[in-house]
Each structure stands twice: as structure tokens, then as C-alpha cells.
Amino acid sequence: MLKRVAITGITGLAVFAGAAFASEDPISTRQNIMKSNGASAGALFKMVKGEIEYDALTAELALREIFAGAVAFPTLFPEGSETGGKTRASPEIWKDKAGFEATALKLENAALAAIPAATSGLDQLKASLGSVADNCQACHEKYRLEKN
């Protein structure tokens, strides 16, 4: 009984901590979204380069992950999250919020728009990947700082 209470307590704490992690630490959350995007970009590019086999479901999953990340992304830069946690967020994000949000919206739309082509064959994925990937550069050019 005591054991069960302890386990429930610990699990509850872990869930609570997890929730706190996502909602109260925007820096870590946005960094993890970017890691997911890196994994998605990796899957897509590796298929294009012939390093892994083309798979329509993987392509769709990767593009939907990028879409979902881009939807959440602009909400993760509240006041007070300008520095700390090794963030490379540029002060431009807070100076030019509208521009930043517009850039994220472009990525959302590009990822969704690429799904029909990317899931219909490798050549179509090759032809459409640039329209998504160019958005990574465009945002990182203006809104991300160099590494320390």
C-alpha cells in the first residue's frame, strides 16, 4: 500500500515536473522543438541523398512534425526568456515580433503544402524539400545568434 502510494506520488511528481518543464521553461521547450525539426530534416534529407530508403509515411510524419513545431514555436518566447539556458534566440525576436511570427507562419504553410508531393514519390520529395528547408535559413539568418 505504502509502496503504491509512493509510486503514485513519484509518478504524479514526474508528470507534474514534466508539465512544469513544458509550460514554465520555454527555452528548453523551444530547444527541443528545434531538435525534433533537426531529426525531421535529417530523415527527409537522408532520403533525398539516398542514405536511407524513401518512405512516404516517414516523409509525411517529418513534415507534420515540422508543421506542428512551427505552430507552437512563436508562443515560446515570452518576456523574460530572452537569456539563459544557452539560448541563441536573437533580441530581434522581441524587437520584431510580427516579422518573427510571419516567418513561423511561412514554415507552417510550406510544410503542409509539401505533404502531397513529398508523399507521392522520391523525385517529388527532392523537388519540394527546398521550399520547406529554405525557411530554416530565412529564420535563423535573422532571429538566431551565433554559438558561443
Binding site: 530534416a41 535559413q137 530565412a138 529564420c139 535563423h140 539568418e141 551565433e146
Partner: peptide
């Protein structure tokens, strides 16, 4: 392509 071996993208002044 603008992507590193870890599939991080280029940024800053290097993007151009």
C-alpha cells in the same frame, strides 16, 4: 543545402 551533418541549418550572416 545550408544543413550541417546534424541537420541543423545555417544562420546569421553565413546564410547569405
Amino acid at each position: 543545402s545550408g544543413f550541417t551533418p546534424e541537420y541543423d541549418s545555417v544562420g546569421g550572416s553565413m546564410a547569405s
